[in-house]
Computed example of a mutant assay.
Amino acid sequence: MATLEDWANLEGYSQGNMKRKLLAAKEALEGGVNSVFIGDSRQQNPLKTAFSGGGTRLCRSFTEAAV
């Protein structure tokens, strides 16, 4: 899990299409969404996998992550 405070590190580690996904996630978080999940569409059940911990969760803050 990462927050907006970690953004510089996240951008430094991302490559290719993940940069685009991170930009969209950042815009959503800055727009008021509490958290964003990024999953791998190559998985058999990508949404289920992402929500059960198999993806990346981004939150506005650690306070939002606790909810």
Rank of each mutant, 00 (worst) to 15 (best):
E30W: 06
E30N: 14
G31C: 10
G31I: 07
G31F: 07
G32T: 09
N34K: 15
N34D: 15
S35L: 12
S35Y: 14
S35P: 00
S35N: 10
V36W: 08
F37R: 09
F37D: 03
F37K: 08
I38V: 12
I38E: 00
G39R: 04
D40M: 08
D40C: 07
S41F: 14
S41H: 13
R42F: 11
R42Y: 10
R42L: 13
Q43M: 12
Q44H: 11
Q44G: 11
N45M: 12
N45P: 03
N45K: 15
N45I: 08
P46S: 07
P46N: 05
P46F: 00
L47T: 08
L47R: 14
L47A: 07
L47W: 13
K48M: 10
K48H: 13
K48E: 10
T49W: 01
T49R: 06
T49I: 04
A50M: 09
S52I: 02
G53M: 05
G53N: 07
G53K: 07
G54R: 04
G54A: 09
G55Y: 02
G55N: 02
G55E: 00
G55W: 01
G55K: 03
G55P: 00
T56S: 11
R57Q: 10
R57L: 10
R57C: 09
R57I: 10
R57M: 12
R57D: 00
L58G: 00
L58E: 00
L58W: 02
C59I: 05
R60L: 03
R60S: 05
R60M: 04
R60P: 00
